[in-house]
Design a protein around this nucleic acid. Sequence first.
DNA 1: TTAGCTGCAAACCCTTTGCTGCGTA
DNA 2: TACGCAGCAAAGGGTTTGCAGCTAA
Lengths: 138, 138
Amino acid sequence: MGAPIERLCEEKGLKMTGQRRIIARVLAESDDHPNVDQVFSRASEVDPRISLATVYRTVRLFEESGIVTRRDFGDGKARYEESSDDHHDHLIDVESGEVFCFHDAAMEKLREKLAKSLGYELVDHRLELYARPLKTKK
Amino acid sequence: MGAPIERLCEEKGLKMTGQRRIIARVLAESDDHPNVDQVFSRASEVDPRISLATVYRTVRLFEESGIVTRRDFGDGKARYEESSDDHHDHLIDVESGEVFCFHDAAMEKLREKLAKSLGYELVDHRLELYARPLKTKK
DNA sequence: TTAGCTGCAAACCCTTTGCTGCGTA
DNA sequence: TACGCAGCAAAGGGTTTGCAGCTAA
């Protein structure tokens, strides 16, 4: 890990700057879908001279390059996660705000079927479950 | 129709102003999930003196009162639709931008099951299918 | 009459962008 | 060296809000 980003910058003729390296690492090490402010503060811990504008630019660059995926869980702030092959969905714990990923094949199939039955070909989707921890006992 | 909003304003001790009546009617008559600008321009056709701020305030008031539901299809603008009992989902035609509502019981059941299997109780969800019309023939 | 509402414009928040100096290749 | 990149601050787009006058009840 760490390598893919540098390889990609090469491929695209991009310069591998210190800032990009740091932001890439922050994103790779975060599994909590951080928003830009969070990426910014984590990157700032490594190098306090990084600016918010650079984080915005870099994160967008990475998104356009397919390295990261932008998410939007309805709080008005974009969140980012490393791109992965499995098209997973998210469960948001409404009490803690934590986000969990999951993948369900049956659901995926159902989505395809549904779109087709409506005369459409699925190109993307968004599924978020907002849920509260089950109280197994009082 | 039309009545429910007035009844609700009474219940909440709200004044039934001309603006609210117009905005309520616009929302009731729209089935295309308009954003605030669209509500504003439709309301302006009825009474050009209505301000954008009033539309924002009213639409929010209606949302808090449960009369309308706010949606967010990822374009950065809130969209509104009359609240309904069926928890339907949306299919967005990525070519035309049109939005269709649908409801699928199997999917609903699957969501509940999934949340439970993760140790959660579902309180809300969001499902959007972004799709392209099937070309049945050239 | 009066509490609540509207219009206007300014303020907010997140995000993008123009410009100038800096650093990678 | 040269072009791309970073930092700063200002601008942008959607949404909210402070204030003073207006209006439904």
